[in-house]
Amino acid sequence: MSNKEWPIWEVFIRAKQGLNHKHVGSLHAADVQMAIENARDVYTRRMEGISIWVVESKHIHASEPSDQEALFEPANDKIYRHPTFYILPEELNHM
């Protein structure tokens, strides 16, 4: 008997038209078809979605936690990048 583990897949669900696919979790599946069906059965049982993406986890490349300072902290003192400094015309008050 083969004890080979099935690969892990990351699952992304689009909740409704116009929204982005959002990462919801991961699962095991032997192939891509099974991954989509497992995602349907595991993550859309309560009408959470209208579209599914699956990506084998090994194809996801992540930033290194140790690079955190170099990557993210330089943005801390650049609050002018937030659009809150602009004075909006009256008509756009509710933006």
Partner: peptide, 11 residues
């Protein structure tokens, strides 16, 4: 046989 298929068949 595996969690995901357990959910599939009970669905």
């Amino acid at each position: 046989p595996i969690l995901e298929q357990d959910i599939a068949i009970t669905n």
